[in-house]
Structures are given as structure tokens and as C-alpha cells.
């Protein structure tokens, strides 16, 4: 067999494998977030389904999870529920309502705290339940990510190994579920398995709090499809209602050099 024939055969084999892989994967849809300025910086103008999305925040209280919730609310027009894996047992669902999340679509998963688990015994043959809350939360997250009855999973995740993240990535590709991880800035130095990594910071900390509305900046740090837009999105939090709004940058104040007519 000639070298060309061998090459052709290898290419055909790889094509078959690629086709088989594509068939097992769920096709992605792009769902606009409803926040115009955020959609502008996203690769296809919205969040992809069947993907892993990270929202990273600099400090607590920066509304990162609120923005994440607001951005996934349009996904709930599709069938499937919103699962919240709440390892810390402090997710307050009442606040999710002001971001357009219907509570009837929300499933709250709270792994039992370590103190509630049965105590381990000295009889080693029978000891199986040494898992703590964190590993239970990771297990629940992966199980939820593998369930096609779930549309989106949202969780606060600080510590996760590369193996865990890779497993989550494979799970969403298979099931079509979207995982939204809200993570602290301490993970920025870690490799990312996410399709999108967005960073939330506060705009001008010294001045931002002086008004009833608070401005936040969202930057796209990583995209699997490449960074098409290097700018940032500006958002505003209305403290009277708790709602997150998109704001547009003002036009340049310099006068036009040529008359319009």
C-alpha cells in the first residue's frame, strides 16, 4: 500500500472517529443573556448551552452570583430546571426572584453537613462513608451535570482539581447541561476548563457606592472560541429593587469634525 493510500485511510478513520464524537455530543445553542453590554463581549452574542461558564469575583459582595443568575434566566425558557448546588447552605432563593428566576423551576441541593453524617467506625471493612461535605457537593454537581432534565447548574466552587473540572466538562458535553461556577479570584492562576471565564470587578470603588445605583465591570478573560472583543461590559445594580441592568458607554463628547448635513 502506498503512502498516499495509508494517509487517505488514516484520514478517513479519523473522520469517522470525529463524526462519532460529534454525534455523542449535544449541539450547543446560544442564548442571549438579556444584558446587552454582556452579550456584546460574548463570542456569539450570548451564553452557550452545554458549556462550562466561570464567573470570577474579586471580593465578596460584588454581585457576581446575581449577574450570573440574571444571565442564565433566559435559559429557563427551555425545558429543564435550574439546580443550585449549595455547599455552604447560605443561598437565599428569595433574592433570586429579582433576577427573573421563577422559584418553581429551582431545585436546591444542599449536601448534608459533615456533622450530620454518620460517624465512621473503627471496623475498617465497613467504613465507606468517610466523604465530607465538599466531596459530596462535587459528586452532586457531577451527577446533576449529567442529567438531561437539568437545564443549568449554578454553584459556588472554590476548590476543584483539574480532574474534577475535566469530568464536569465531559459531563456537560454529553448531557447538554450548562454549568455556571461562581468562583473567587484566587483561582485565576489555575488552568481553566471553562468555555467562558468572566471576571466581575467594581467600577471605581471609591466613588461607586455614593449613588443609589452601583456600577460593575465584567471582563471576558477566556473563551474557547477566542476573544473577539477585548472590551468590557458595564452593569448597574439598582439597590432599590436589587435588579441588575446593562448600561451603555456614553458616546464620545468630542464634537464631530464634519457637519452631518
Amino acid at each position: 500500500m502506498s503512502a498516499a493510500a495509508v494517509r487517505t485511510k488514516a484520514i478517513q478513520s479519523l473522520q469517522r472517529q470525529l463524526l462519532a464524537t460529534r454525534q455523542t455530543q449535544t449541539s450547543q445553542q446560544i442564548i442571549p443573556t438579556g444584558l446587552t453590554s454582556v452579550d456584546t463581549i460574548l463570542p456569539h452574542g450570548g451564553l452557550p448551552t452545554a458549556s462550562l461558564i466561570e464567573w470570577v469575583f474579586d471580593d465578596v459582595g460584588l454581585h457576581a452570583a446575581s449577574i450570573a443568575l440574571k444571565s442564565i434566566a433566559p435559559m429557563l425558557t427551555l425545558p429543564g430546571c435550574l439546580a443550585i448546588v449549595d455547599e455552604r447552605h447560605d443561598f437565599h432563593a428569595d433574592a433570586a426572584r429579582c433576577h427573573g428566576i421563577p422559584l418553581s423551576r429551582m431545585l436546591l441541593i444542599r449536601p448534608a453537613r459533615a456533622a450530620c453524617l454518620p460517624s465512621t467506625t473503627s471496623h475498617s471493612r465497613f467504613v465507606r462513608q468517610a466523604s465530607g461535605t465538599h466531596s459530596d457537593a462535587l459528586w452532586a454537581l457531577e451527577q446533576t451535570a449529567r442529567c438531561p432534565g437539568v437545564r443549568v447548574v449554578l454553584t459556588f466552587l472554590e476548590l476543584a482539581s483539574s480532574a474534577v473540572m475535566r469530568r464536569l466538562q465531559l459531563a456537560v458535553e454529553r448531557s447538554g447541561v450548562t454549568i455556571v461556577l461562581v468562583r473567587p479570584a484566587s483561582i485565576l492562576h489555575q488552568p481553566s476548563f471553562a468555555d467562558l471565564r468572566l471576571h466581575v470587578t467594581v467600577a471605581e470603588p471609591a466613588l461607586a457606592g455614593l449613588t443609589a445605583r452601583r456600577r460593575l465591570i465584567v471582563r471576558l478573560l477566556r473563551s474557547r472560541h477566542g476573544l473577539q472583543h477585548t472590551g468590557h461590559a458595564q452593569l448597574e445594580v439598582d439597590h432599590e429593587t436589587g435588579a441588575v441592568h446593562s448600561i451603555s458607554e456614553l458616546a464620545d463628547s468630542m464634537p464631530a469634525t464634519a457637519p452631518a448635513f
Binding site: L78, F91, H92, A95, R97, C98, G100, P102, S104, G242
Partner: peptide, 18 residues
């Protein structure tokens, strides 16, 4: 999906998410 289940944002109070 149920369009009637979407909450009215104007009727909610600004509460912390945690």
C-alpha cells in the same frame, strides 16, 4: 417553562443572595 411563573421584579425586595 411557564410564563406565569416568572416573578414580577417590581414586587421583590433587594435581598442578599447569600
Amino acid at each position: 417553562s411557564d410564563s406565569n411563573a416568572i416573578p414580577d421584579i417590581e414586587c421583590t425586595l433587594p435581598r442578599p443572595l447569600r
